[in-house]
């Protein structure tokens, strides 16, 4: 078994970064984002990036740090509402943007990783999304053709992983990470817990190691919460 473990996020990305590349970054909002690998990409200074990610972080955190440093040329996303700097860069023409419906984005990545160059979906028929794309009728309904999507590099965040690259995600931090792991020409993963080979339940591995080229235990995880929402505790009944 090849040991895919790397000592640091910088080591894990060494030799895998180049200007003008396409990077897929896992996460939904700030949940399940590869924060250590994003920091290492910032440190590298690699620029003119096309980044595929459902969102683009917030000001000062997540992919927002790569906007601040001017390293991103184009985003492919479904929703970018939480980022003032994004708005400024987009309106000034310094940032390109391609919106995909969220399910289309997820399926494009899944298809790309599975070697499927294109597929048809009802999502977006009759809207701006379908403009310039082939629309075809199947069984009396109209569908638009969408292309599979691959990247030069995928950066993925998992909860637990082993040296073979087997991964387990936690709760809704899974989101886009498993598909992106399959769609990168090279895939680098950061985990909260790097565990001994053999300790993960083999029937419950979410991403098998074949998709993973390098794995690193994240140096630190801030795991910032975008919208803390709580309910009041029931007041104890007074006697």
């Amino acid at each position: 078994m090849a040991d895919k473990t790397q000592k640091s996020a910088v080591d894990a990305l060494a030799g895998r970064l180049f200007d003008g590349m396409t990077i897929m970054a896992g996460g939904f909002g700030l949940c399940g984002i590869p924060e250590n690998l994003i920091a290492a990409i910032r440190e590298s200074g690699t620029k003119d990036l096309t980044v595929v990610s459902n969102n683009c972080g917030v000001d000062g955190f997540g992919l927002g740090v790569l906007l601040e440093s001017g390293q991103i040329r184009k985003m492919i996303s479904s929703y970018v509402g939480e980022n003032k700097l994004f708005e400024q860069l987009y309106l000034s023409g310094d940032l390109e943007l391609e919106f995909n419906p969220q399910g289309t984005l997820a399926e494009r990545i899944r298809a790309g990783g599975a070697g499927i160059p294109a597929f048809f979906t009802k999502t977006g028929v009759g809207t701006l999304v379908a403009e310039g794309k082939e629309v075809r009728e199947f069984d009396g309904e109209m569908y638009v053709m969408e292309r599979g999507l691959v990247a030069d590099l995928s950066i993925v965040k998992a909860w637990k992983g082993d040296a073979a690259g087997n991964l387990v995600y936690r709760k809704t931090a899974r989101n886009f990470n498993p598909m992106m792991a399959t769609a990168g020409k090279t895939t680098v993963v950061e985990v909260e817990q790097l565990v001994a080979v053999g300790s993960l339940d083999k029937d419950n591995i979410h991403t098998p190691g074949i998709y993973v080229d390098a794995i690193v235990a994240g140096a630190k995880f801030e795991k910032r919460i975008e919208r803390v929402t709580t309910r009041p505790r029931q007041a104890k009944a007074s006697v």
Partner: peptide
Amino acid sequence: YEGEEDADLINAGKQT
């Protein structure tokens, strides 16, 4: 409940 938020558990509106 306050204090029991989990960063890995949010809804589509990004609320805990």
